[in-house]
């Protein structure tokens, strides 16, 4: 099967459970957003997928190959937050080595992309600024054709121009070569329009997995007098509430029910970010 499949994956660090029985299927050919707050378990999940860390329990497969097998490792490339490249290497040497390790790496394309980012390929990795180290890592990933490309907080420390350029290049390469992209981030608004499917993770558990389009359509806010709002919300999936004076705002997920003409209720769309914040807030209250 062309997919990443996790079954009941658990990972503990001492007394902290970073991943708590995560089961997840990421089908090939989509751009996924793995969204979660800091410490939600995003990085741990990607670490398990890229075989950098080991799960304490459960199984993980990439296209049917167990994670850790060389077949699985040839299918996935992970750009993490930490820098693992040899600090003394020049950027162009890193390109050279990527070409040696990956059949799908295009050195000429890498030089081209580096030019667009104004990344000096003759600099040593350790002499680059934090932002340019990120750019260097992103360049290495963008010039690589591989079925699964996984990014952990890719744009942290990048200026607006570089972020824009990264998203444009990523979409261009995705449109041209296909493949599967996973963007793990807490900067939800920024990636929202790129995503085809959204996976929300919190406290090491998957809160929900939905297509971005359906989430956008099904999340809404209803505002009005408290009693009216409560009456409307009865039996609906309410993810959060706010109060503004006498006005009550309820955040709902699901189909919108038509209200009779003259109803004091007002409806508005809820952004992915708002939905996410409300969902994780509630989780914190319950937990």
């Amino acid at each position: 099967m062309e997919a990443i499949e996790l079954k009941n994956v658990t990972k503990r660090y001492g007394g902290v459970t970073a991943l708590d029985g995560v089961s997840l299927t990421l089908e090939a050919g989509k751009i996924y957003g793995l969204l979660g707050r800091n410490g939600a378990g995003k990085s741990t999940l990607l670490g398990v997928l890229s075989n950098r860390i080991f799960a304490d329990g459960g199984t993980a497969f990439i296209n049917g190959n167990p994670v850790g097998s060389s077949a699985a490792q040839d299918l996935l490339f992970c750009v993490g937050e930490a820098n693992y490249y040899r600090p003394a290497c020049r950027v162009k040497d890193l390109f050279f080595w990527a070409g040696k390790f990956y059949a799908g790496f295009d050195e000429t394309l890498a030089e081209e992309i580096a030019g667009k980012f104004r990344l000096d390929v003759n600099r040593r990795f350790k002499s680059l600024s934090t932002g340019y180290r990120s750019i260097c890592k992103l360049t290495l990933a963008l010039a690589l054709r591989i079925p699964y490309l996984v990014f952990d907080e890719p744009v942290l420390g990048l200026d607006a121009n570089s972020r824009e350029l990264f998203y444009t290049l990523l979409l261009g390469s995705y449109a041209k070569n296909g493949g599967t992209v996973v963007l793990a981030t807490h900067l939800i608004e920024e990636v929202a329009s790129l995503l085809e499917e959204v996976v929300l993770i919190d406290h090491g558990k998957i809160l929900l997995q939905r297509s971005a389009e359906s989430l956008r359509e099904s999340g809404y806010c209803v505002a009005g007098p408290e009693q009216e709002v409560d009456r409307y919300c009865a039996g609906k999936h309410v993810v959060g509430e706010d109060r503004l004076g006498g006005l009550k705002l309820a955040y709902c997920l699901g189909g919108r029910e038509p209200v009779p003409a003259g109803s004091p209720l007002q409806f508005s769309q809820m952004s992915l970010q708002k939905l996410f914040v409300k969902l994780t807030e509630r989780e914190a209250e319950n937990g």
Partner: peptide, 16 residues
């Protein structure tokens, strides 16, 4: 210390 990181980043299995 150094080579392990670099090789892991480039998807080399531990056995290799």
């Amino acid at each position: 210390t150094e080579d392990f990181k670099m090789l892991m980043q480039n998807g080399v299995p531990r056995g290799t």
